[in-house]
Design a binder for these strands. Sequence first.
DNA 1: CTAATGTCTCTAGCAACTATAGCTTCAAGA
DNA 2: TCTTGAAGCTATAGTTGCTAGAGACATTAG
Lengths: 146, 146
Amino acid sequence: MLTIGKLGTSAGVKVPTIRYYEQIGLLPEAERSAGNQRLYSRKALERLAFIRHARDLGFTLEAIRDLLSLSDKPDQSCAAADAIAKAQLLEVESRLARLTALKAELERMVEQCAGGCIADCRVIEVLGDHSLCATDHRHGAHETAA
Amino acid sequence: MLTIGKLGTSAGVKVPTIRYYEQIGLLPEAERSAGNQRLYSRKALERLAFIRHARDLGFTLEAIRDLLSLSDKPDQSCAAADAIAKAQLLEVESRLARLTALKAELERMVEQCAGGCIADCRVIEVLGDHSLCATDHRHGAHETAA
DNA sequence: CTAATGTCTCTAGCAACTATAGCTTCAAGA
DNA sequence: TCTTGAAGCTATAGTTGCTAGAGACATTAG
């Protein structure tokens, strides 16, 4: 059995984050030692590694919750898991498209800056006037995860 | 003079967001009508449009605060503004790189899923085992803005 | 045995809003 | 003029995914 610290190091997750996952029900309540400290099995480590990996891939905790409950039912169709992954892929693709446009706009902005004073600064000017932009980066989906 | 609603529509910013910007000092306190309602000038509209545009380009409110205070000093060098824009460009580029890796991994995952049952699902399997991944998307910078 | 480290709970904070409740003000129609 | 409905006001709490701190207890190395 692992203490919370060992578990965290093994899975690459910080200790308070593990407690947080338990608190929101993403991890089951851990067993406790005589002195009330959390103890974790190999299985718990696997589950946490799963969460960690899915987070790294940008899945929300809600999506991970669903994926975990699916992975607990090995006999069911994987259509649902597939759908979640596909949705995440779409998310990532749309963010990618948006970021690509942003990058182009920022590059344009930075290139045009001749380095004079603020009054002549293209950075400030472009920010103040969207019509100076080449691409349509308006009202984009603002994101939360990587 | 514009009411807060008109201002919001003109700038493409929601009314509560405008009040929030005022609250955190990004917008100056608005003038008030006899009945205590906020009233905005053309200048206020420009300032809000600037903020909106910068947000669309992914600048944080902190960065925008700096850019705004710079834009109020037209005689100074634009080096600082330039630096902020360049930092933002770097940010966007690093997010882009990360997202590109994520996309590849998600595509692999989704492609490999044969559509059977959970026990055979590549999506679940790959999530459970990082070593099945092609790229290094581990411990990436998790972001907040677009 | 003691000191250092690890763990415990609880609360509050971060960004950047969004939503709700319960009130007042305003503009337009009857 | 009255009334109704939209728009405005304040204040507070919620969102996501953690992170940081306080103050107390547990464990372990020397």
